[in-house]
Design a protein around this nucleic acid. Structure first.
Lengths: 154, 154
DNA sequence: GTCACTGCAAACGGTTTGCACCTCT
DNA sequence: AGAGGTGCAAACCGTTTGCAGTGAC
């Protein structure tokens, strides 16, 4: 269970500021808009997508893509965002303020459906235990076709 | 269930040759040693690891890394090998001649433990059905520490 | 005023591609 | 002989890093 579950923006922001302070890091406009955008849009962003969005939404900041990467990495290390991996194609990031969940990903249109299943989580723990393995995280993605794309193909 | 499950080398080779013939592709020494190595070593190879192994084991072939990538991609498209992804760090490939399974991966030493659980597979299908999603494949990795590394850390 | 942060551009690492030569069929 | 395959090196693409200038504290 994440420390940041179900927090609203003001609390997330306070957490972020405290985290920065504790590590002698600075609160900047760039870091603020990254967190704000992840919160408000509630989407799965690639660093590239987020960069493009921020570039056009806050042109006065003239944000660089390196800063987007640096901020996402900082937030991920701090467990305030999580990422899902797409193999060689890269990663997508989302804010970690919702309960743990996994993803179904449509191969055709890229739609992401979130789901959560306690029984599977439980079984994973049992399997790990049987193998003397200590789970720190897991990755579960179901890949295939969403309803719309499945219809279009048939 | 894979078409190639439990096949031994001679059958795999025959399948590969037929596949090549059907697509007007040629059977070469390079393609042969890639398949042979994946079969004999029965490991999870990165393209780089496989390249280094082939380079030293068959120096007379003077194999290039591009050929290793091309062959692995060909075999993966043909469903004769599968890959597991490590985010930005790349992929590892293994021969698809064993029954479907998933992986536990030790973050510290890279150890890979294979496991299989019918109940989870069943639950995944149910979840997909409830979301009108048509699964074609799934990815499940448990990440954490193996027994040995967990002991060393404590 | 100091130290961290930023944008920029160059570097990086894994992967793919264009090309001239080679090899399987 | 001809099609496809190969090794090589260059290109590619997402990501990281060095650096000089900027901004938070």
């Amino acid at each position: 269970m994440s420390t940041f579950e179900n927090l609203e923006y003001s609390s997330l922001l306070a957490n972020f500021k405290e985290l920065l302070k504790n590590n002698s890091l600075k609160f900047t406009k760039q870091r603020e808009v990254v967190l704000k955008t992840l919160y408000e849009r509630n989407e799965h962003f690639t660093p590239e997508d987020l960069y493009i969005f921020l570039k056009s939404t806050y042109p006065e900041l003239n944000i660089g893509i390196a800063t987007v990467y640096r901020t996402l990495n900082l937030l991920e290390e701090s467990l305030m965002v999580t990422s899902i991996s797409f193999g060689v194609a890269g990663k997508k990031f989302e804010l970690a303020n919702k309960p743990h969940h996994d993803h179904m990903i449509c191969k055709t249109c890229g739609l992401i459906i979130e789901f959560q299943n306690d029984k599977i989580e439980q079984l994973q723990l049992e399997i790990a235990k049987a193998n003397h393995f200590h789970i720190t995280s897991h990755l579960m993605q179901l890949r295939g076709l969403c309803e719309k794309c499945a219809k279009e193909k048939s």
